[in-house]
Write a protein that binds this DNA or RNA. Structure first.
Lengths: 124, 124
DNA sequence: AATACGTTTAACACATTGGTTAAGTGAAGG
DNA sequence: CCTTCACTTAACCAATGTGTTAAACGTATT
């Protein structure tokens, strides 16, 4: 999973399109493993393990009722993922702070050029 | 990487704390491989491969200048990741649409209990 | 009681990942 | 030149991820 921290677990869980599909499904309704498996072209054990990954990332919770296990979306960890990504918004959202991004880019480029073309000691 | 689509590549790249650290560094300035390696406790080849992962996800671009290769943050793919996650905002951000989420939850529970053999209370 | 159903676990195969060290490439510089 | 420097590639290893099928488990059904 790369890291063992929460954020890594969440991003890792989101890295699989099947799991993103499951989350999308759960956004509309709680669902059993069988229901989640139906539209997919993989076996139920495979889905079961995807659910375990999502559960470990705390993106879903599961309840038992007789022989059925319902999965429910738990979106809280997505908030932290969103917070992490939002810190980079100014780098893509030029309408919000075009000047910021431009200045940052220019300054970064200048520093990089200095380091790369200029005094080698700056590299240390 | 789970999937070969762009989103999977991006989330997969973000799943590693070392790579997130590299992106954070590049958010402040372009940097060479050596500079990026310095604060880390891994070898330069390891960093080089992390950069390749980031490059494949198009989260960075790289330029050559003599024997130096500078990496630059390219945040555009983060926008799509943010867009994907934002679709779930209402599930965690109760202040924005508490009613929406509540209604969705109630309806989902109702549908789920209907499907689940008619015992009305297990999911509620 | 016996069977069917929903789900998980086990055992296996195979690809990918993330790290290492050592060797290769190509530009810089004495 | 010939070496040094920045970086990449190759070869290898251990661990993890994703899928499979078959077996196990517990509840429902008849």
């Amino acid at each position: 999973m790369a890291g063992t921290d929460q954020l890594s677990a969440v991003f890792s869980a989101l890295a699989d399109p099947t799991r993103r599909g499951i989350l999308a499904e759960l956004a509309t309704r709680d669902a059993t493993v069988t229901e989640l498996t139906a539209p997919l072209s993989i076996s139920m054990p495979a889905v079961s393990r995807h659910l375990k990954v999502l559960e470990r990332a705390e993106l879903i919770s599961r309840s038992r009722s007789g022989k059925w296990r319902a999965s429910r979306l738990e979106a809280a960890p997505l908030r932290e993922a969103a917070v992490w990504i939002e810190r980079y918004r100014r780098f893509w959202d030029s309408s919000l702070s075009r000047l910021d991004a431009h200045l940052a880019a220019v300054q970064a480029a200048a520093r990089a050029t200095d380091r790369m073309a200029g005094d080698p000691k700056e590299l240390a």
